[in-house]
Design a protein around this nucleic acid. Structure first.
Length: 277
DNA sequence: CTTACATCCTGATTGC
DNA sequence: TGCAATCAGGATGTAA
């Protein structure tokens, strides 16, 4: 389940391996992703050089020379792997490899997504920030713009659960189910609390926990809970540092109380009933 | 505006 | 053991 730390980790690796390479050709498998791959995709991308990789929320932005940019979202089962030429490079797997970019050093960049909740979309550079995907996004959680004052203002009067607020991309962009649970554990606040009833002191703890958790996860190259792999096929190492996510019934690392799992906003939400109030 | 919930999809897990 | 049913979840669309 790639969230901001996984996409950022992916970006950092690909900056070293894929930036500067020219895309010689594109192979397209299944076009029906979250958004259908357009007809003109190959023509617009072939022959272009990858000049920069950036990230907005959970979107990876692949900037090409010329007029276009590729907007990539991994959904929940997507991956973008960089495969060097050689015996173990792997064949194109038409079941779930949906896009394959052949690069000028004989390596290949492959977008694979079994559940097809992700997408790869071609956008004109100037129109990027106005695209449906990016235009409504809230601030980056690692930016100055996201702080306790901002969060308090957004939480005021809201009856939605605080966890839903953290996962609402219009409020703050890039936090998903795993890190929302971890952030709230660190802040000592139950995921079910109504946002408008969370005290100022608790809001400050949450706002402070956000960058701590996200930066730690980026430092561990993300979390592999089930299937996430980075561009080299490596799993993230943050799974061993999860305090509550996926630990239902297991003892809290702080107080030994069994971790509970409740559904909040149709998502599994893990918390310690003693440490989180 | 806000909230709640169904929908897309298929591999993994659970239940009988 | 085998098969069927259920679960998981990011973003979006619709309904209330």
């Amino acid at each position: 389940m790639p969230e901001l730390p996984e996409v950022e980790s992916l970006r950092r690796i690909l900056v070293r391996t894929a930036v500067g390479r020219t895309i010689l050709s594109v192979r397209i498998g299944e076009k029906r992703l979250r958004r259908r791959v357009t007809q003109d995709f190959s023509g617009a991308v072939a022959g272009r050089r990858i000049v920069k990789l950036s990230r907005r929320a959970k979107y990876l932005i692949v900037e090409l020379d010329g007029a276009h940019v590729m907007l990539v979202h991994l959904g929940m089962s997507g991956s973008l792997t960089h495969r060097q030429a050689g015996f173990d490079a792997g064949e194109f797997d038409p079941r779930h490899d949906h896009l394959e970019f052949s690069l000028d050093d004989a390596s290949r960049l492959v977008y694979n997504d079994p559940r097809r909740f992700g997408m790869v979309r071609l956008v004109e550079r100037g129109a990027l920030s106005a695209t449906a995907e990016l235009k409504g996004l809230g601030p980056e959680p690692l930016s100055r713009e996201f702080n306790a004052d901002y969060l308090a203002q957004k939480a005021r009067g809201r009856t939605a659960a605080i966890k839903n607020l953290l996962m609402d991309q219009r409020i703050v962009a890039g936090i998903g189910n795993i890190y929302a649970s971890e952030i709230l554990f660190r802040a000592g606040v139950r995921p079910t609390r109504r946002a408008g009833r969370v005290t100022r002191g608790e809001i400050e703890k949450i706002a402070a926990a956000v960058p701590v958790i996200l930066r730690a996860a980026i430092g561990s190259a993300g979390t592999t809970f089930r299937s996430y792999r980075d561009s080299r096929g490596q799993p993230g190492r943050f799974a061993t540092r999860l305090r509550v996510y996926g630990r239902e019934g297991k003892p809290c690392y702080t107080c030994s109380t069994p971790i509970r799992n409740v559904v909040v906003g149709q998502r599994a939400s893990f918390f310690c009933p003693k440490c989180q109030r």
